[in-house]
Design a binder for these strands. Structure first.
Lengths: 200, 200, 200, 200
DNA sequence: TATGAATGAGTCTTCATTCAT
DNA sequence: AATGAATGAAGACTCATTCAT
């Protein structure tokens, strides 16, 4: 059956090759979707031959998974880096609004990427797992930041999670703008107040 | 080329045929996903020939779209029917918990269906539109119910939308159960309180 | 095996049905070609059901053959009707030029029809036979006319045939206009002189 | 969708593959006609897989077009190579008869090829163009030969074109032999005389 | 006679994967 | 390590023809 083990790249050159494939794969999949991207395209975009792909990856799906592990977080949570300084200078209301704005800006930038990746999250277990890990990571981050800044409430974990969901949904609402009758400024206010109550 | 117009079924027999295809298509797509279901399978499951499929549907994608229009709502919002009686008998807290439980139960029933359909929502514009229409419809329903039952608050539309998202996310959390460290009973309490504050 | 004999229409109504199919088939085939026309289209254009087609015709090819037998001559030789009066009034030169002009005009009118039918002449034996019969018929016609009008030369049959070919080719040249560097007025003069020499 | 660019074969191996496909395609199309030949057959006859066909050709039609560009001239004008020596040794009458015989012999050899290809000339624009280019090329050839050999007449271009048509038609007549009542030896004489008069 | 729904083999085309070099 | 030519199974879609009504 031919011993087709996947190469673990050690040399610098082959590490680069693998990464080129990963990056090209990620970009194409984000742009056009997993099912509408073929391996030949990925190889071409990565400037390598079609054959070599299968020395670094088990199959096409493997490219998806690994590329999400490498680059996915930028799409999943594009990314709340709330610095300590933010907290020093601002109140919670301002901090939340900063977060929301960053979130929205990022979503707008990677509109199609986000769509395509979220699609896979729903249908592909491996992708779902990566996504959820990234979600947890971010939640934990936030918890730590909140805790470090004097927010003391029980069930912080659950509350932060709910807060993140709120922001995420809000963000979708604003970016995809599907509901004409909705007033987004109002909605932002509603969400901010909601989170503030939550963390109180 | 060929002027293959799509038949609008009139006779009883052909209405039935179309519906068989629709139903079989919906079920298979829910179960295995759109890209992993082929037209031959759909035809076979519907107990018809492959050819007839293309007399009722323009192409495979058309089956997806029409089947979602017919059966999708059961997956999208499976479904909050808060009866007037509920309101007469119960307080908001109970009502919300009833809603949440119904939601969760339904999601559990159609686990894979929901996953596959939500995947398409993110990658397919036609599907996204159907989904969002269904979302609006449900939101409008709820608004009416709340209004009818003495809940008077400004920006009801936006608040209800946020509430629905909260329930939806909560539900995903519980059903897909990805975060081991999360206490779902707590989370339900958090969400219920959050919504109650929102609508106050 | 089901005795699927083809109906010979006797009643007036069924004669009409058959003719509707024939005419629709002929027109569509002329317009789009035999291989790009399907039986459903023909039935629809004829305002009959798809099923009925197979009660009047053995198969699709049969429609082609019969429709050519009925309507083909208009395309094959669209048509040199040199009246006796023409001869009384004019000299051979004028007569030939009249013929050529009529020919060209007709070809221009049924450009695509002619193309499609000639295609079949080359690949389909049944069609080829119909075409050649029609060719002979016209040649015989012309021979008679020439003979009746005092043109006496040996091998009239062969000469007329050559003359007809000359006119036909000339006509293609002018209608399809593929050779930019060719002067068509000159070419007409050349052909007319050629035929006159031939018949002298 | 898929960015399936057509490969321009560079390596010796792939040049050979492309040519095998071209040749097999040409032969099958000549034998059975374009519409009655499928890509699987072509691949099989070429001893390659079906997939590779689409790396060298955009689609089935592309095989037709390219194979005609490569091999078509042998069918279109199978081919009047009137050498200088012919002219030195013979008079025009003999030269013409040599040409005619060569023509007829060639047509007889590739009977079905000629039929099928001429069919496409009439229904397919791309094929028609190739054919007409080949026609022009041959006409130009002949003009040069005649001019080089002291034939001086005005409108040589048009006259040669008419002469070529005459030979072509004659040839069809003889090869396909549809008109039983025609004497072909006479017809050849008629045509030869006709051309001689033309070029005088 | 007529309808039009249904059949299913057949066709083109794509693409993940393998293999010779 | 790398190339890119080759494979061939699989899939969407068509259409001449048949059949139940």
């Amino acid at each position: 059956m031919g011993n087709t083990d996947i190469r673990k790249p050690i040399q610098k050159r082959s590490i680069e090759t693998k990464e080129k494939i990963l990056k090209a794969g990620f970009e194409l999949i984000c742009e056009k979707g997993y099912y509408n991207t073929n391996t030949a395209e990925i190889a071409k975009a990565a400037n390598v031959s079609t054959g070599i792909v299968y020395q670094y990856f088990k199959d096409k799906h493997d490219i998806l998974v690994e590329s999400l592990q490498n680059y996915g977080s930028s799409v999943f949570y594009p990314m709340i880096k709330v610095s300590e300084k933010d907290f020093a200078k601002n109140d919670l209301d301002t901090i939340l609004r900063n977060m929301i704005n960053k979130f929205i800006k990022n979503h707008k930038m990677s509109h199609s990427a986000h769509k395509e990746i979220m699609a896979m999250v729903h249908s592909d277990d491996a992708v779902a797992e990566i996504y959820h890990n990234s979600e947890i990571e971010m939640t934990d981050n936030l918890i730590k930041i909140f805790a470090d800044n004097g927010i003391t409430t029980d069930h912080l974990k659950e509350k932060v999670h709910v807060a993140v969901n709120l922001i995420d949904d809000l963000c979708h609402e604003v970016v995809y703008h599907k509901h004409d009758s909705m007033d987004y400024n109002v909605m932002i206010d509603v969400v901010v107040k909601c989170i503030k109550d939550l963390l109180k």
